[in-house]
Nucleic acid binder design. Structure first.
Length: 822
RNA sequence: GCGCGCAUGGCGGAAUUGGUAGACGCACUAGACUUAGGAUCUAGCGAGCGAUCGUGGGGGUUCGAGUCCCUUUGCGCGCACCA
């Protein structure tokens, strides 16, 4: 028996689709739009199974929505700036541009072999000057709005990538791309004021109902909003006031010391001329050489040094010693913390190490806690003690009262802090969008004139992999004239973090070839938001928060119509094999090329969609792939066998007997199931299993005595239609075999008939005390009372009940009758 | 440490609102066709001879729990000195 010739079939239809521009999309106000987007790839050159899964999911949704009558935007492009291209240049001497463009060509070929319904005319590549011109333009708009600024700061520095990193790109103290331990460096860098948007980024999360909770929680934690108070402490012997941030102002009477971050600029003023000066300097020096991993490796064990200075507690008037310690972070709050050892574990550890007093000020009324001999900090709620006039007050009430008091006294205020930091966007690398800023000795930093954009990446550069950006080696790039005063000036040589490029590409897709604007307002108004976004959960914080920030900032600039870019988000699960993530080092990688070559794209897509729901892990199984391949062959044979009966049969059918009835039932049930699963629930695995059931049913039906050709035609054609979003090539071929001249993609999605789903008879279960005893068929539509009477009147039922007393009868029509006996 | 998620046959998974647990597929077993089959078709396939027992363990709510509540174990993921 022959296999279907997937090689020729897939090539044939891919060619046809391309020639007919089948997937070309234009704005059409008369139709409801649907924007389905998969996260665009970095063009590494090789497609992996994660990509295949991502794009298969997106393609089913896109094809389904199209057939369901929507005007579908389904684009694809490349996030094509980034380090690998530059590393290839350093290692092999190839131009980053050449390397990238050839990879993109290769990946496009691979993507096209998958039969994805992309409108390639809208494709973007972020490294194209016609794209990064608008990236630069957006940067300038942000700059003019005050959202971009340059500042010298200690920054995260990856020694291996030889560049700075954003906070979000540092994972466990290591570079998220290469894994090197990240150090600190003092550099002058460009930042985006994402912290201005912290509250909106947080609050809007509640409205993103189509987002997985997990992602929203991750973003929420990353933004890390905490409400508290800033309180001023006088420094003894110095004309200075130190402000601390605390969320537990209710514990202020228990403050027994003050701690300040080693990097804090005020430390110098504290120690100047004291006898502790040398010791403190040595400690600061030591701390400055530690990276984040070393600093956090000592959680629990606290280090620090006394500065020789004291602060005055504004409530008790007591003098408390000031210490320098590296458990206080310079970047959070004010970099100075009031130490309340009785109620904060870190302060407790510190007090124990330095033998500082521990004064409990909140009594939790817990017999397990001995306030006079605390074993650990007590964080529980309770009533205040040792707190003067506040004694006896509930501590949560006290927080409110104390903030009021502090504000009245003018020694502090209510304050909110975020873990979120401003976004460091400069990168000391070549292969990225040049930051379109110019430094003039007279005018300072000024943006390049918009009519001079794009600021082109120079090509006369050397790649050494060391020191500052390779752009510095260009003889043509740096020297320019000031756009304001016309005097000689120098260009910024850093490039932008590539996460900027990917923060607005979904807007460019709406109007990808616009040479006069980043995107046209009306086109963006028509297409946005993205109705369904699909990608890996690894972007939960980085990309998804940056893109939200961009959209909000662009909204504030009046350039887009919505505040949030992505209405619904689907985070697909990983593809694993033998219980482990596919990776070269484990050697369990399955190459998409190989699978598509051996079984075809339809089989690959079908398997990936059938093996697991999209948001879960997918366990790769070679035998499972063969099963999917067998199924497609089985469908293909079925069409071949019924072809002669079906072609020319009538377009409408009548139900003539029980065989007809059961086929019609199965057909409608399948349409319903696939419509629900492909249209909103996205459980493609159950959609496919339902199609498999229909195929099994048609196989049975074609052996019955009286074949109803018109019904069989409806069944087989509907089956092919609902299968076509999953495996488009074979469905096109079968559709053609059945005598249709036009693409199945242009067909309307079938509608199911609710009436056909009503059965004459239903199976009900008879339970005794909730245990299933018997199953039998009864007429459909019986009322509760009728069902109960019917069941209770049977001899079999009486036998089941026996001589026990019937306590209660629960009858659920269409489901069961439960007889409770004693 | 804090937060989130998951746990169902030999395996991937179904059960959408509390109502017949195991759909669909893989693997396996037997048979048919065949020179042969790793093709195809037919039948079987949670455990137990059986009554029955079965959704990680224990408890609860309910006529009825994979599904709801409490508790516990294991695994996975995220954050982690954020005052």
């Amino acid at each position: 028996m022959a296999y279907y010739d997937f090689k020729n079939i897939e090539a044939k239809w891919q060619k046809k689709w391309e020639e007919e521009h089948l997937f070309k999309t234009t704005e059409d106000a008369s139709k409801e739009k649907y924007y389905v987007l998969e996260m665009f790839p970095y063009p590494s050159g090789k497609l992996h199974m994660g990509h295949v899964r991502n794009y298969s999911i997106g393609d089913v949704i896109a094809r389904y929505k199209h057939m369901a009558g929507y005007n579908v935007l389904h684009p694809m492009g490349y996030d094509s700036f980034g380090l690998p291209a530059e590393n290839a240049a350093i290692k092999h001497g190839v131009e980053p541009a050449d390397w990238t463009w050839s990879n993109m060509a290769e990946m496009t070929t691979q993507l096209k072999r998958m039969g994805l319904s992309y409108d390639w005319d809208r494709s973007v590549a972020t490294c194209h000057p016609k794209y990064y011109k608008w990236m630069q333009w957006i940067f300038i708009q942000f700059y003019k709005k005050g959202l971009a600024y340059k500042k010298e700061n200690p920054v995260n520095w990856c020694p291996s990538c030889a560049t700075v990193l954003a906070n979000e790109q540092v994972v466990d103290g290591c570079c998220e791309r290469c894994g090197s331990v990240v150090g600190k460096k003092n550099l002058s860098q460009w930042y985006f004021k994402i912290t201005d948007y912290a509250d909106r980024l947080l609050e809007n999360l509640d409205e993103l109902e189509g987002w997985p909770n997990k992602v929203k929680i991750m973003q929420k934690n990353w933004i890390g909003r905490s409400v508290g108070a800033e309180v001023q402490f006088k420094v003894k012997d110095l004309d200075k006031i130190f402000t601390v941030f605390t969320t537990r102002v209710d514990t202020i009477f228990g403050t027994t010391f003050m701690v300040i971050a080693p990097e804090h600029p005020e430390v110098e003023n504290l120690i100047k001329g004291t006898k502790e000066e040398a010791v403190v300097r040595a400690y600061i020096e030591e701390a400055s050489h530690k990276n984040d991993i070393e600093r956090s490796s000592t959680v629990g064990e606290k280090t620090g040094v006394f500065t020789g200075r004291y602060a005055v507690n504004p409530f008790t008037g007591k003098e408390i010693p000031i210490y320098v310690t590296d458990y206080v972070l310079m970047g959070y709050g004010t970099g100075i913390v009031m130490g309340v050892p009785a109620h904060d574990q870190r302060d407790f550890d510190f007090a124990k190490t330095f033998d500082l007093p521990i004064i409990p000020v909140v009594d939790p009324h817990d017999p397990e806690v001995d306030l006079n001999d605390l074993k650990a900090a007590c964080k529980a709620e309770g009533t205040l003690i040792n707190s003067g006039e506040f004694d006896g007050m509930n501590n949560l009430v006290a927080i409110e009262k104390l903030i009021e008091l502090v504000e009245k006294k003018g020694i502090g205020k209510k304050a909110v802090n975020y873990k979120l930091r401003d976004w460091l966007i400069s990168r000391q690398r070549y292969w990225g969008t040049p930051i379109p800023m110019i430094y003039c000795e007279h005018c300072g930093w000024v943006p390049e004139k918009e009519e001079n954009l794009p600021v082109m990446l120079p090509t006369d550069v050397e790649f050494t992999g060391k020191g500052e950006s390779p752009i510095a080696t260009s003889k043509t790039f740096v020297d320019t004239v000031c756009p304001v005063c016309g005097k000689p000036a120098k260009r910024e040589i850093d490039t932008m973090d590539t996460f900027l490029d990917s923060s607005w590409y979904f807007l460019r897709y709406c109007d990808a070839r616009n040479e006069g604007e980043a995107f046209n307002y009306d086109k963006v108004k028509y297409w946005m938001n993205v109705d369904q976004y699909i990608g890996g959960v690894e972007h939960a914080i980085l990309h998804l928060m940056y893109a939200r920030f961009f959209q909000m900032a662009l909204y504030d600039l009046g350039l887009v119509t919505t505040e949030e870019p992505f209405k619904n988000l689907l985070t697909q699960g990983m593809v694993i094999k033998d219980g482990k993530k596919m990776s070269k080092s484990i050697g369990n990688v399955v190459s998409p090329d190989e699978i598509i070559g051996k079984y075809g794209a339809d089989t690959a897509r079908l398997f990936i969609l059938f093996a697991a729901p999209p948001d879960r892990e997918l366990d790769w199984s070679d035998t499972g792939v063969e099963g999917s391949y067998r199924f497609l062959n089985r469908v293909y044979r079925l069409v071949d066998e019924v072809k002669d009966t079906v072609i020319g049969a009538a377009d409408s059918y009548e139900i003539k007997n029980s065989d007809d009835k059961s086929l019609a039932f199965e057909m409608n049930a399948t349409i319903k199931k696939v419509t629900e699963d492909a249209g909103g629930r996205f459980n493609f695995n159950t959609a496919i299993s339902s199609i498999m059931e229909l195929v099994n049913e048609i196989y049975r039906y074609k052996e019955v005595k009286e074949i109803n050709a018109a019904l069989l035609k409806a069944a087989i054609e509907n089956m092919i239609k609902v299968l076509s979003p999953f495996t488009p090539h074979i469905c096109e071929e079968m559709w053609e075999e059945l005598g249709h001249g036009d693409s199945i993609y242009k067909e309307k999605w079938p509608v199911f008939d609710e009436k056909a789903l009503v059965k004459d008879e239903v199976e009900v279960v008879i339970q005794i005390n909730g245990k299933v005893k018997e199953k039998l068929n009864v007429p459909n539509g019986l009322s509760k009372g009728d069902l109960e009477a019917l069941i209770m009147g049977r001899d079999n039922t009486k036998q089941l009940v026996g001589d026990k007393a019937v306590v209660k009868i629960i009858a659920v029509p269409g489901k069961l009758v439960n007889i409770v006996v004693k």
